[in-house]
Each structure stands twice: as C-alpha cells, then as structure tokens.
Amino acid sequence: MLTGLHEKKNLQLVLGLFIGVIFGFLLQKGGVTDYNVIIGQLLLTDFTVVKIMLAASITGMLGVHLLRSLGLAQLHPKPGSFGASVIGGLLFGIGFGILGYCPGTVAGAVGQGSLDALFGGVVGMLIGAGVFAALYPKLQQMILSKGDFGELTLPTLFKVNPWILVIPVAIALTALLWWMERIGL
C-alpha cells in the first residue's frame, strides 16, 4: 500500500478535493444532479440512478478487490446493525424521496444552480445531522446497538475467499442491467 502517500495530510486534502471535482463532474454529466432525474427514479419512470449506481458498484468491486489481492488497498466496510442500517436507511429514504437529492447529488445540484438544493436540502441536512449528534448517546443505547453485526462483509459472513462472491455478484448485477435495458427501462 502507498502508506507514505496516505500519511501526507495536506496532500490528502488536495486529493480529496480533486477526486470530488471528478465525482461532481461525472454526477452532473450523468444527469443525477437534476431533481427530475432522481424523482423519476423513485417514481420508477427513469432508471438512470440505478444504472449509474450498479455500473459504479460492479466496476469498483472488481478493481478494488484486485487492488486488495495485490496488497495495494484494504477494505473499509462500515459497521452496521439492524437498528442502524434498516431504521436509518428507511429514514434516509423518506428524506431522499421528499427532497429529491441525496447528500452527494445535493452538492452537485448546488453547483449547477439549484437553490432548493442549497437553501432547502443542505440546510435541512445540517439540522438533521446536528439533531442526530445531540440524540446519539440515547439512540446508541436504545436503537443503534440492536442487532449489531459490526464491520461484516458477505465473504466473511459465508467464510469464503472474496473472489468466490465478487465474480458471481458482478455477473449477476451486469445481467440485471442487461435485462433492464432489454425490457426498455
């Protein structure tokens, strides 16, 4: 791994900015910084969001696992629990459907001039995140710790070499995209 590079703090901030610029550029070119495209996905009339996410996930999955096998990268799976992932995921989803942007695309929408994203979405998110931070100790005790499974990945869960799952999952997701195209989504 490029540990020396990872430890250069200021250079990492520049790299973060640079990766963000490319990410924002791609999101805008993909159309997903547009409210209409995201709401179209959630109303199941426009499948752009799912196509981008699945294509990104498949490409990323193959490359990142290859980097890992070559000893050039390590995984950082997020910890989870049923209380955090399911309830938090549903709350996020409700917000996602009401707002019509997600945390990355809301920033991209700001970049293309969407004022509802800036004054509504971003401000609302800052308040929501602040309320979460205030409630965190109580939530942690009452809900977030319920059904905790930690930093689990599917290969660890099934006790197999990651490639045993990476290849079939990548093929299955590609087949799903191919099928969506075929039925005209």
Binding site: F92, G95, I98, L99, G120, G124, L126, L144
Partner: peptide
C-alpha cells in the same frame, strides 16, 4: 419548505445508517 423537511430526514437518516447513497 419541503426540501428543508426532506433534507432534515436525510441528514438524520444518513448519520443513523452511517452513510449515504455514495
């Protein structure tokens, strides 16, 4: 107003679930 409410739930939910769509 609707965007603000949506943003609130999304900000709360993203931290609750520990991540977002990215």
């Amino acid at each position: 107003l609707v965007a603000l409410i949506g943003g609130f739930f999304m900000g709360l939910g993203a931290r609750w679930a520990g991540g977002c769509t990215s």
